[in-house]
Design a protein around this nucleic acid. Sequence first.
DNA 1: TTGTAGGCGTTATCAA
DNA 2: TTGATAACGCCTACAA
Lengths: 322, 322
Amino acid sequence: MANIREIAKLAGVSPSTVSRVLNNSGYVSWETRKKVQAVMEKLDYVPNLNAVSLKKGATKLIGIAAPYLGDEINTFLGNFAQAAQEKGYNITLFLTNADPKKERDALESLRRRQIDALAVVIRANDWDTIAQYSKYGPIVTWQRVIMKEIPSVFMDQYEGYMLGLEHLHAKGYRKISNVYGNPGHLNTIGRMEAFRDFCRKYCLNEHALPHFYHKGSIRDGEEMAHWWKNTADKPDAFMAPNDRFAAGLVSEAKRLGLNVPGDFAVCGFDNTDIARLLDITTINYPIGGQARNAFSIIQNRLEGKTIPLTGLKFELIERKTT
Amino acid sequence: MANIREIAKLAGVSPSTVSRVLNNSGYVSWETRKKVQAVMEKLDYVPNLNAVSLKKGATKLIGIAAPYLGDEINTFLGNFAQAAQEKGYNITLFLTNADPKKERDALESLRRRQIDALAVVIRANDWDTIAQYSKYGPIVTWQRVIMKEIPSVFMDQYEGYMLGLEHLHAKGYRKISNVYGNPGHLNTIGRMEAFRDFCRKYCLNEHALPHFYHKGSIRDGEEMAHWWKNTADKPDAFMAPNDRFAAGLVSEAKRLGLNVPGDFAVCGFDNTDIARLLDITTINYPIGGQARNAFSIIQNRLEGKTIPLTGLKFELIERKTT
DNA sequence: TTGTAGGCGTTATCAA
DNA sequence: TTGATAACGCCTACAA
C-alpha cells in the first residue's frame, strides 16, 4: 500500500509536492506534475481517505437513519443519495427498525465523526434526545418538528389531506372515515385538523363515523375491508394514511366481493407505484423534492452555502377508486 | 473537541492509559480507570473514529452497491444491514442507477479505504473490472458468477424456475411463454436451462411460443397484457421474471377485461409483498438468507473467521393466478 | 500498573 | 516552484 511518502521518494520530490498534484493546489511545474503522476500510476497509488478525513476533519459521509425500507422512504432515500453523490458525498445507511438504541448508533456515529451530518428520516428517539446531538453536526428530518436544532423538510399534511377530502366531497361522498397513522406524530395532527375544518366548512358531524389510528400497513388495509363488511353503519369513503394501506384495503375488498368505489371510495396518500398499479386515487406528495431540500440544508450548513430550497406542493391524482 | 491527550492531562495520566481504558486493554487500576472515565464524561469525550480507522487500517464500514431500491433489493439490503450492524459494521450505500461510473465510485471507495468491503448486489461493470478491485478488499455479489475473486451468494435459478414450470404443467397449462430478464446474466441462463429440460421431459416444443428478454418492470408487465390481447397464437401461461412484472401483467389484464387465470395464468418470482397483495402465485426466493450469507462471507474474510453459511432453497407459493 | 515514543497517511503553514 | 515541519487523534511496542 504505497503512501504519499513513497511516491515522493520515487519521484524525487517532497510529500508536499505530491499532495499538491493530488489536490491541484498551489504551484507545481508541468514536468514535476507529470513525473509524479507517472509514479502514482505505476504504483497504483490513491490517497487513503481515512487520513484525508482525519486531517480535514470531515468524512464526506452523510448518515441517513430510517426505521425500514419501503415505498416512501425509498423515494426519499434515492433522491437524497443522488443529490449527495452529485456533490461528492456518500451515504451511510442506518436501519433503526424503530429501535431507539439503533438510532442512537447513528447519532453516535455523528458524535464520533464517522459521518458529517445525519438525516433522520423517521425518528425513534424523542426530539430532545436527537437535538442533543446537533452540536456534533447538522441533523435534518423529514418529520414535522419545530426546533432550531433540527431543520425539517416536512410539508404540512393539512393541505394535501384537504385536497383529498374536498375531492371526496365533490364526488358526493358524505360518510368519510379517516384512517390515520400515529396520532402522536404531528403529520397526523395536520390531517386531523384538515378534517375538522372540512367538517366545519360543510356542516358535517366530525364524529358521525369511527376513525382509526396507528394504521399504515398493507395488512391494516386488508383488515379494514373486513371491518367494513361486518359493521353496521358503514362509511362510504376512506381517507387512507398512505398508499400501502389503501392498496391492502382495495385488494382485500375485491377478494371479499366488494366493489370499489361502488361500495366505498378510497383515497390513498403519497402517489407511489403501488397506487398507480392498483388504480387508486391518491395525493401526490413530492417526496423527492423534500429529499433534495434536506440535502441542500445539510450542504448549506456544512459548506456555509445558501443554496435556496425548492418550493413544493401537493396534488390530487384522480384514478378509479373514487 | 477534546482529544485523548487532553483527557490524559486532566486526569493526570498518559494518553496510553486513556487509550487502555477506552479499549479495555492491558492493565489499568480501578482508581485510574474511574478517574479517567470521570474526565471523559465531563468533557463529553468520545474517540474520533477517523483516527481509529487510520490507525487500525479498517473503517468498520461495508459498502453496498445496487442499481436502485426495490422490493427484492430492499430485502437483501435490510437483512444485510441488520447482520452487519449486529457485528459492529455500518453500511454505506451506493445507488448506481446501473451506471458503471457510479459503481466505479463504490469500487474506488474500497480502493481508497473508505470502506473495508463491498457487496455488489447487482453489478453495472463487467466482472473483470470488478474483480480488479478485489485486491483492495473482499467483494461479494448476489449475482451468479464463478470467479475466485468474487464469491457469490447466488442461488441457481434453475431449481426455482423448474418449480414454477412443474406447477403450471400440473395445473394443465401447456402453452407457456417465458419472460426473462437480461439474457446475459447467468441468472437468466439457469432459467432458460430449466425450461429446456422441462420441455424435454414432457416432450414439448421449446419454441412453440415466443419468449421475451430484457423485461422486468411493472410497465413491461403492463405492455405484455396488451401484447397478449393483440396476438394470434396466445400462450395460456406466463412465467414472469419477477413479481413486479407479474403484478403489472395481472393488473393491466384486469383493466383490459381479461381474466387471470381464465385467459392465462401468471407465475411470479421472488415472493415479495406485491405478489401477496395481488394474489399472485410465485416462487419464494430466500433473499434474506442470501444477504446474511453475503455478510458472513465478508466477515469471514475480514476477520479470518470461518462462520458457516446457511443452506437455502426455493419454494412454490400457490395463489390465485394459476 | 503506567509512561514514552513513534507511526498511521495526509494536509497546511511557512520558509526557502 | 519546492521542501521542512508540524499537526490531525489515536494505538501499541517497549521500557520503566
